[in-house]
């Protein structure tokens, strides 16, 4: 937050709004999350390390963050494409397609997970087509990526869409009159403009995917060391009344997520500063 305290604004009230922000963030985010660290501190450091470095736990971290990263990257590509199509072209049923984008938001994630499993299982409509190629979609890491892509799609589309909407057509035309081909126009002129929003969409999709539970547990099959995600492992520990073990895993996830999100935010802040002149 780069607000200079001395700056005179048309709308005053920095003290009040900042105070409310801190209170709100504390009640909703900070205090609940701090209990995780409190709870896991019941363990000794050795116990803690033992829990979080167990092969099964390490595998689940790798899978959770890895699959989330892949899914968010896929979403960047195809989400931007969807946004592009929705902004640039008019076609019949455009409103319906536009509405479909939000569906993964609205749907209970378990419903999404079951639906995806049905379709991508080796007997499902799409799974059946993949089977002869030796590709196993459901009950494999691929299935997890599919589920995480599904739930992350709206984030990228909805952040990129308004930015593309505001993009001045004349700027592309200027690029063309100067002799740039389509690829050059896209890379040199359009992409720099939408990159910050793509980055935001990526962050949101990634963060959402890391925490996703409902849709993944159905399609992954939850095989230890292979298709077991970290949130599922936490649930397993809770089912076994191993509360401290669960919070230890959660604490590590929390720290890693926070560091990653902070890094992305810094990247964004830095790329914003490049254009601070604006």
């Amino acid at each position: 937050m780069a607000i200079s305290l001395k700056r005179r604004n048309i709308l005053p009230g920095f003290g009040l709004t900042m105070g409310f922000t801190l209170l709100y963030m504390s009640l909703i985010v900070l205090i609940p999350l701090s209990t995780i660290f409190l709870k896991s501190s019941e363990m000794t450091w050795a116990q803690f390390c033992h829990v979080v470095t167990a092969p099964r736990v390490l595998a689940s971290y790798k899978l959770s963050f890895g699959a989330s990263l892949v899914a968010a990257l896929i979403n960047i590509l195809f989400g931007s494409l969807v946004a592009w199509v929705l902004v640039r072209y008019s076609f019949p049923c455009k409103q319906i397609i536009d509405g479909l984008v939000d569906l993964p938001f609205a749907l209970p994630t378990a419903v999404g997970g079951i639906a995806l499993t049905t379709v991508y299982a080796s007997t499902g409509w799409i799974g059946r087509l993949l089977e002869p190629w030796g590709i196993k979609a459901a009950f494999s890491p691929l299935g997890i990526v599919i589920a995480l892509t599904f739930i992350g799609l709206p984030f990228v589309v909805r952040t990129v869409q308004p930015v593309l909407q505001d993009f001045d057509r004349e700027i592309e035309e200027a690029s063309a009159t100067l002799g740039a081909n389509r690829l050059q126009t896209f890379i040199r002129v359009i992409l720099p403009g939408v990159l910050p929003s793509i980055l935001t969409g990526f962050t949101l999709a990634f963060a959402r995917a890391v925490g996703e539970y409902g849709s993944v547990v159905f399609i992954s099959g939850n095989m230890p060391l292979r298709t077991e995600i970290a949130p599922f492992l936490i649930m397993t520990k809770l089912d076994q009344f191993d509360y401290t073990g669960a919070t230890a895993i959660a604490a590590v996830m929390l720290v890693v997520s926070f560091v990653l999100l902070l890094a992305i935010n810094m990247l964004q802040w830095w790329s914003g500063r490049q254009k601070a002149a604006d």
Binding site: D168, E170, I171, A174, G193, D278
Partner: peptide
Amino acid sequence: RSVRERKVGFVFQHYALFRN
């Protein structure tokens, strides 16, 4: 001929400068 091939200089009303 496409815009690129025509090699005309075009100046837009609202400048259309590249902001970045």
